[in-house]
Design a protein around this nucleic acid. Structure first.
Lengths: 200, 200
DNA sequence: CACGACATGATACGGGTGTACCACGAGAGG
DNA sequence: CCTCTCGTGGTACACCCGTATCATGTCGTG
């Protein structure tokens, strides 16, 4: 009944099902059985390809991270060629705000993982990369470049500004997910800040 | 065995136990049984004073909101007399950032409720007040007053600025809870922004 | 051709969850 | 004094969870 099968393909299929459930019903609803049903396989198979639930969650998180990274690259590339620090900064921040289906999905799911980490910080250690810190560093570097190009006032501290900016985008995302405002409104608030007080 | 008893007192005792668990173990760990044990009463009593779990959650949320409101009032009062728009704005935003035990507790618990709302938006409707919107309005009013006092540049849009500011504080709180930085660092980022680019 | 590893199915186990039900003692109202 | 309601305890029910176990069919390999 069972020929040799591509493990990676199956793992992708199952992990994607997990992410789909996390998007539509929240990460807390992503039980082994629910994932199995969503992926169209038996519960046993989920256990077979990811021995434990934690392993499944960690694997799916890595994929989610990759998806966000890919989205950022796309947005940066689409922002203009050649890319200037200003367009890169705008692209990075704008592509996080949940304005379309994909960014909403990513934001929702990331939030689920965030809550998970809050209740069990060990997960964060088992999962190697500390993505927010490196993103923040990258953003700070771009701000510094923008200062060199004269697009940002020279007396702005790049690290402080990057941290504040990322926090703001994150908070805007939360408000959209919570239904307080639309994605477009959130994007408008971000753009207003960028054009009015960050860039000269 | 049971004399007539003060219902409100018992309800407070139980709801506070719920909030204590939400702080230390996360809202998802606040089961009926866990709350009963924490409050030192039997499971039956939790059912008796709050018929359903949803009612308990809603009641505790209202109390949490009251606590945050009280904290804000205290901080505003402590910020200086007479209060100027500038000190009020600084106080409101600073008292949200999780720098001490109480603000950490409030932030953590609010985040738990936020996640709950994401997976079941009906809860938000049953619970009347939309606190973020009114807080944002109040902040916008203070910014407008600060503009009149010459503390904020006149060409800043008060609503946009208030929304961005609140989002930033919210995002900073998340980063602290997630262990990305300390409360002091977050407060420093906020203060830097306030003193360097919001206030003249 | 046979054997052993791989892939899959069905199901059981122990535990946790919210809610419902039944019983019973103590005090208040007639 | 009797009765009835209030406060409380204990426990049962139905369901969901993650994980473990056993069985079985199919293939690649010797």
């Amino acid at each position: 009944m069972a020929a040799r099968v591509d493990h990676e393909e199956r793992r992708t299929q199952i992990a994607e099902a997990l992410l789909r459930i996390a998007d539509t019903q929240g990460l807390q609803s992503a039980s082994m059985r629910a994932v199995a049903a969503e992926a169209g396989v038996s519960l046993r198979l989920v256990q077979y390809y990811f021995t434990t639930k934690e392993a499944l969650l960690l694997d799916a998180l890595a994929r989610l991270q990759g998806q966000l990274q890919a989205r950022m690259n796309t947005w940066i590339a689409a922002a203009g060629s050649p890319p200037t620090p200003r367009t890169v900064i705008t692209a990075i921040l704008s592509c996080i705000v949940p304005t379309d289906a994909e960014s909403s999905r990513i934001a929702r799911t990331y939030n689920g993982y965030y809550t998970l980490v809050l209740s069990d910080p060990d997960v964060l250690e088992k999962h190697g990369a500390a993505q927010p810190a490196v993103l923040e560093g990258f953003l700070a570097k771009q701000i510094r470049a923008a200062q060199a190009a004269g697009d940002v006032a020279a007396d702005q501290d790049p690290e402080m500004t990057a941290a504040g900016l990322l926090a703001m985008v994150n908070g805007l995302g939360s408000s959209v997910l919570g239904g307080q405002r639309s994605g477009e409104e959130a994007l408008a608030i971000l753009t207003y800040y960028l054009d009015t007080t960050l860039f000269t």
